[in-house]
């Protein structure tokens, strides 16, 4: 019935990894394009986390920048002020951010916050974070920021290596996502994002899933934040503001497609291209983002990946109709999931 090679559901992850791994072969090593491509990987990984949070558990965390910033500032300060070695510092910073993500989620769950209220509270957390970094000027240099050279694992000096490390993080995030979605937990996440009350009444511990997902997402996001600090050679609070992180991530996810494996990647690619076009307009980019976001929410909530899947299904079903009798045979293979959209097709449940 579900006879398939055990790892076949990882093929899209692997394919994406291989395709993206080829990029450095075609661009100049220290060039602008590789920088943009590296940034794209980070954006995609943020979006994978945000997809888990918002797409699958309806937690509108508008503090992705805070989580990334905790990874960044945490790791940098632990090296600079506490003398930890960079790897240990990153691990500790990620652990702190993971705890923060879980805590914010737990508060929301306990107090029964709706989607919008979680959005408002986490937005407030973002403002607090900005003020905290500015206020702790003694350690953070305030808005002047910190030059991170020599404080990290040396990503700034090796752009190609940095690209591959960040690609590995993205692929790991995608693999974890796919593994979860293919397990019974995936079914629980799909169910609870559809209706939390019904999910509870079916025996799903909604609170635990929400907190667990928030911790996981915060872990990946803060890891990327810490690596960003090293790679970028410099951090300042504005680099982790809502406008710089959360809004782009929201656009990426909506563009690419919520609740899909590859939505974050596709969205990041499209966004990066659009961003490169509007960037010359300076201050206007903020306006462009705003308009884009409104348009996405109004007319394109499904995202590119879902749209492509739908088109592909239509093509498939029309060719099937052409071949008399095949539809019936397909029906009888007994797998209710075989007609599913790609992102979910591999779920054994």
């Amino acid at each position: 019935m579900n006879a398939r090679p055990v790892l076949s559901h990882m093929l899209p992850v692997l394919g994406t990894g291989i395709a993206l791994a080829a990029v450095p072969l075609f661009v100049r090593e220290s060039g602008y394009v590789l920088r943009i491509a590296t940034f794209l990987l980070m954006l995609a990984t943020y979006a994978v986390g945000f997809n888990l949070l918002f797409g699958h558990t309806r937690q509108l965390f508008l503090c992705i920048g805070v989580l990334a910033g905790t990874g960044a500032y945490g790791s940098v300060l632990l090296v600079r002020n506490a003398g930890l070695n960079p790897v240990a510092a990153i691990a500790v910073a990620v652990a702190i951010a993971t705890g923060l993500g879980a805590f914010l989620s737990y508060v929301g769950v306990r107090r029964g916050f709706g989607v919008l209220f979680v959005g408002i509270v986490t937005l407030a957390v973002s403002l607090i974070f900005q003020n905290l970094v500015l206020g702790l000027r003694k350690y953070t240099n305030g808005e002047t920021g910190i030059v991170t050279q020599g404080l990290g694992v040396g990503l700034a000096e090796n752009p190609v290596q940095a690209y591959y490390i960040l690609l590995a993080v993205l692929v790991a995030a995608l693999a974890v996502y796919q593994e979860i979605m293919g397990s019974r937990h995936g079914l629980a996440l799909h169910a609870l994002s559809d209706d939390e009350v019904s999910a509870e009444l079916s025996g799903i511990d909604v609170a635990r899933y929400k907190v667990g997902v928030a911790a996981l997402a915060a872990g990946f996001i803060s890891l990327v934040g810490a690596l960003f600090a090293d790679w970028n050679g410099f951090i300042s609070p504005s680099l982790f503001s809502v406008g710089h992180v959360d809004i782009p991530v929201l656009i990426v996810l909506l563009l690419g497609g919520m609740r899909t494996l590859l939505g974050p990647v596709v969205g990041a690619i499209v966004f990066t291209i659009v961003d490169a076009i509007v960037r010359p307009f300076g201050q206007l980019t903020v306006l462009a983002y705003g308009v884009l976001l409104v348009a996405l929410f109004l007319v394109f909530r499904e995202g590119t990946v879902t749209l492509l899947q739908r088109g592909w299904e239509m093509v498939q079903s029309s060719t099937q109709r052409g071949q008399v009798g095949r539809g019936v045979a397909a029906d009888e293979d007994g797998d209710p999931l075989s007609q599913r959209t790609n992102s979910r097709a591999k779920s054994p449940y």
């Binding site: 629980a188 079916s202 025996g203």
Partner: peptide
């Protein structure tokens, strides 16, 4: 119900959880 799931999956949620 869970609109993104099939009829069978809706029931499966009950079986599994």
């Amino acid at each position: 119900l869970f609109p993104h799931l099939t009829v069978e999956e809706n029931v499966l949620v009950g079986v599994l959880f």
